[in-house]
Simulated scan of single mutants.
Amino acid sequence: MKMIGEDDFMKIKRVFILDLASLGIGESADANRFDSVGADTLGHVFEDASLDINLPTLTELGLGNIRYQNPIAQIPEVDNPLGSYGKIQIAAPNNQVTTGLREMLDYQAEARTTSVLDSVAEVDPLDNKVIILSNYQSYFSNQLQSQNIHVNDDTSVWWSLHREAIRQQSGVVYARMSGLDHLAHDGKKESYLGELSKIDGNIQRLMNEMFSTDMLIITSSFANDMRSPLPVTREYLPLIGYLPSGRVGKSLGIRRSLGDIGATLAELFNVEVADNNIGHSFLREFL
């Protein structure tokens, strides 16, 4: 694949956003305000160190590097991660299933808008194609400029995602995984681990399918530690960015709002935002 250097970095034309809904990585700084002290979705499903399950692709992308202070035996830190990595939190003063989603994709603009997804499509309606792959969410149904594809299970999400990946296009493909959340609600730890393993394999396939002008962002819009009686726990969420260039990833640090993802899309696709936008783009930090 063609290498992406600093001079042609802005030639990135398409972004895949993979939302591993429910995957938290440890209590956030404000966990005490949401009865979530000690919450750690990823850590608790991997708490049995003897489990013969690992996530090779996510490990190589830097998932273990995010948790260098609280390592998981099956997801070690790597010296030269393929992805840029960090952790991100929700800034909103509430903690519902859709809170993080809205914070991720809504942004402050001078004129009223539905989300950054619709704005990306409006910036260049001839070239930019925005596709949403998700189970039914009323929020997505209001994205009038996006192609909203309702899918009932994660197998269908992956099938559609791989189909889109092999088409060289401009725009955004947002894919929301719902299976992990269902398994967390049911308290099925072994099934949750198995689903993570399937996700890991599909991410590797997606990385192989990506064009040199693509970018991948892996995150989660909320956390759900199955140890907690709460449907949503207040945790840091993973943030991994990948470019198919072979370069070593960098630390993105701790991001203070999921709005940083929307701000990154806005910068990449030249969407105007207001000066008081809470999100801060991390696009340049990939360099």
Rank of each mutant, 00 (worst) to 15 (best):
P71F: 00
Q74G: 04
G253S: 04
A274H: 13
V248Q: 01
E110G: 02
I217E: 04
I132W: 12
D79N: 11
D8H: 11
K2H: 10
T114F: 10
F16A: 05
L237C: 00
N270Y: 13
T219V: 06
F269G: 07
Q89E: 12
Y242P: 03
N148F: 12
D200S: 00
L55E: 00
P125Q: 09
A266N: 09
L230D: 05
D200G: 00
V172S: 09
I149R: 08
M207F: 02
Q168G: 15
R227L: 11
L105K: 09
D48S: 12
I131N: 02
D153T: 10
E272K: 15
L258T: 01
Y139F: 12
F222T: 03
E267L: 15
L63N: 08
D106L: 07
G43I: 01
S84M: 05
E110Q: 04
T264F: 02
F34W: 10
G241T: 01
G64F: 02
G38W: 08
L20H: 03
K188M: 15
L206R: 01
N152Y: 12
N94V: 10
L180Y: 00
G241F: 04
F222D: 00
A92C: 08
N277T: 03
M104C: 05
M3V: 14
K11E: 13
L283K: 06
I53Y: 03
A39R: 08
E77D: 10
D8Q: 08
G259R: 13
R102I: 12
Q96I: 05
Y139S: 09
R284N: 12
E122D: 08
R67I: 11
L230C: 01
E195S: 04
I75Q: 03
F9T: 06
D118F: 06
L20K: 02
T264A: 10
R256I: 11
S141D: 14
Q74N: 03
L268K: 15
H280V: 14
N80V: 05
I75W: 04
R163E: 09
M210V: 03
A111H: 07
N135E: 13
L196T: 03
N148K: 09
Y192C: 02
R247E: 08
I203L: 06
E103M: 05
V273E: 14
L105V: 06
E77Y: 06
K2C: 10
T59Q: 01
L117K: 05
E209D: 10
R14M: 00
M1I: 11
V173H: 13
T233Y: 07
E47C: 11
G179P: 12
D118V: 08
Y68F: 10
M210T: 01
I278L: 13
K188R: 15
S228F: 06
Y192F: 11
F211C: 11
L265H: 05
I132T: 03
K2L: 09
R102S: 09
R167C: 12
